[in-house]
């Protein structure tokens, strides 16, 4: 009986997913990865809030809302950008899921992983690194350099931040010249999340509103990179970008 009710709820949810996915098909929609163990959605409003900021600040059209999908979800490939967040240890993905995620990333998908634990070497961090090692055993997770397009895809950013300042850099995986996975340890979701009234849910640790703005900018840039790749490294942009970087001592 319990299983039946789960199935009915599941089908209803699935109906919601389909409706969300098919409407405004070309708009940006970011589902969040659901996994076993731990807490796969510490900040339910974080992505919606980020999409709202993207909608407000850029020309990208978004479909706002919250959807969690498992890696086994058949329509995973409808969403080239997925988000994975957490603060606790989680169960390892099955071999099938790992293979599926590897293919997804190798053929055009993008994954943003956000450690919301706000601690160094957190249990979530350990689980993530284990997962990434299983995902790309030949390609290590590396620091993303400051001249990467992520730091100039929309805003000119020279400081990596989030709700907390745990790590001064982002890490990522590159496949054939494209960064397919970005990992932040600074609790980006905590800086993005808002409550129902539109107020910021969590206070920033350390840097105040400026730090929050930087976390939002970083989110915008990561999404912009996923959609435009190395566009900002085209020669036509370089002189102006370099001139601005040189002239302004950016925060």
């Amino acid at each position: 009986m319990i299983n039946l009710s789960k199935l009915i709820i599941g089908l209803l949810l699935f109906k919601v997913w389909v409706a969300t996915a098919d409407a405004d098909y070309s708009n940006l929609f970011i589902p969040q990865i659901k996994y076993e163990g731990g807490h796969s959605m510490p900040y339910p409003t974080a992505i919606d809030s980020l999409l709202g900021q993207i909608e407000r600040r850029t020309s990208i059209e978004t479909n706002r809302g919250l959807t969690q999908i498992a890696l086994s979800y058949p329509k995973l490939y409808r969403y080239p950008f997925i988000y994975m967040a957490g603060s606790r240890k989680f169960e390892e993905f099955s071999a099938n899921d790992i293979k599926r995620l590897r293919n997804y990333l190798s053929y055009g998908g993008f994954l943003l992983i956000d450690d919301n634990s706000s601690g160094i070497n957190s249990k979530f961090d350990i689980s993530v690194r284990k997962m990434i090692e299983a995902l790309f055993p030949q390609v290590p997770l590396k620091k993303i350099s400051r001249d990467h397009s992520i730091f100039r895809s929309f805003y000119l950013i020279n400081r990596v931040s989030g709700r907390k300042q745990v790590s001064p850099y982002l890490e990522g995986i590159n496949i054939k010249g494209r960064t397919v996975l970005v990992y932040s340890a600074n609790d980006l979701g905590g800086a993005w999340a808002r409550d129902k009234l539109g107020q910021w849910t969590y206070d920033i640790v350390g840097g105040g509103n400026r730090q929050r703005q930087l976390a939002i900018r970083l989110g915008v840039n990561i999404v912009m990179y996923a959609l435009t790749l190395d566009y900002k490294k085209d020669m036509v942009h370089l002189p102006i970008i370099l001139e601005r970087l040189k002239r302004n001592k950016l925060p």
Partner: peptide, 24 residues
């Protein structure tokens, strides 16, 4: 290839001075 993306429209509020944007 010479690509141009319109990254912001006149209606968008970038919440930042132009000098902190990569837009040309």
């Amino acid at each position: 290839l010479l690509s141009f993306f319109i990254l912001r429209t006149l209606d968008d509020d970038v919440v930042s001075p132009t000098s902190e944007l990569s837009l040309i």
